[in-house]
Design a protein around this nucleic acid. Structure first.
Lengths: 207, 207
DNA sequence: GCATTAGGATAGAGCCACTATCCAAGCCCT
DNA sequence: AGGGCTTGGATAGTGGCTCTATCCTAATGC
């Protein structure tokens, strides 16, 4: 198929496809001659992945490029998942410098929950965030961390159990990224609802 | 004090302060004459609130304007909290049209958890999000919702209990917005860590 | 034979939160 | 009283990002 058909099948505008080609997100088609190129089903799949990562998950071009490169370089799936998680996580962490050694409170959480003991981006992000909270004078008690981490352990248990390993790497990325995103959002929204409920109760009691 | 001193005290550039004045986020100072105006401690407080909402919480100008207007119009605190929550929540929900009646699965969660039965933005957001997940063919089992909501109920319990009601409305907004944001982020990061841990375990088992 | 289309290159749009430049009016200091 | 400096207001520009529109030439297909 040619560009126009690729556009129609995927619902992505021809101009955007050209943009993705320019940015190196989408591999060039097989050039038939100077003004035509042929695209395959692989291109459709890849394009849909790109589109979902942009529109649903909200990744930027640079992040998508990085992940696709890893996939194309044949990185191990667990590494790929870690990379996907890192960028999905990056979305709303207002770049915390993360330099310092600090408290390493995340390590305590990991031990407490008996999670596998490997340093990761998630762990660094957690440490950085705990330091941010500290610098803002927002107390984080051991009890709170215990409650939160227990809750997230439960959530992740249900969560991971519900996913099955897909065949193609593109599909792995798609399900992982979209899954992480929508589950994170779900948790956030439930938290908001729970907080609102508790706040209402409290205001009723106080009044 | 004049603009320059206001800038020095708050650490916000004079140009940005002018911008906030133009945008109506910061009330104009008392004009002494055609080229001078005097600012008060109220201005410092307000400016710090604006700055925190921008830099820490990541709200945009429009959202901040809305919240400040409510505060200045003397809206009830619970309404104010709801508004703050709405915008903090808005941050990463890729505008889900929310139009349809749909499944109203959030109502079931509310009943299940015994939360106060008032429709809210959080509830609409949850319903919209559940519909989105449905449309993406991502299953949300009752068990999953139960686990998630139970976890968030626990989290919110610890969370709300730890906050004390501040005196000024500006302070209320500040602590509420920053608190919601950093706690949400904390939950998200713990979730990421938990998911990574579970994923590692699973890959080890599978391999 | 000739309108139509592909693909590549390049430029422009639109958004957002600033940031920089001007300018006249006014202050302080000598 | 004169002159350099600051103030507040208006206006325009910047930078990052993701597209989107316009051109152009080569090729297609009826």
């Amino acid at each position: 198929m040619q560009l126009k058909e690729l556009s129609e099948q995927s619902g992505v505008s021809a101009a955007s496809i050209k943009y993705y080609l320019r940015e190196g997100l989408l591999p060039a088609g097989d050039a038939i001659n100077a003004t035509r190129a042929r695209y395959s089903a692989r291109h459709v799949e890849r394009l849909e992945l790109i589109h979902a990562l942009r529109r649903i998950v909200g990744l930027n071009i640079e992040q998508i490029r990085g992940i696709l490169k890893m996939a194309d370089d044949g990185a191990p799936r667990l590494d790929l998942l870690a990379a996907v998680q890192r960028v999905v996580l990056e979305l709303d962490s207002v770049a915390t410098a993360d330099g310092g050694v600090g408290t390493r409170a995340a390590d305590a959480v990991v031990r407490l929950r008996g999670w596998p003991d490997s340093p990761s981006d998630a762990r660094n992000a957690l440490n950085a965030h705990l330091e941010l909270m500290e610098s803002l004078n927002i107390p984080v008690s051991g009890e709170l961390l215990d409650t939160y981490s227990k809750a997230m352990d439960d959530v992740a248990g249900v969560d991971i159990a519900a996913t099955t390993a897909p065949d193609s790497v593109d599909e792995l990325i798609l399900t992982a990224a979209v899954g992480m995103h929508v589950h994170s959002q779900l948790v956030l929204k439930l938290l908001a609802l729970a907080q609102a409920s508790h706040a209402i109760r409290r205001y009723e009691r106080d009044a």
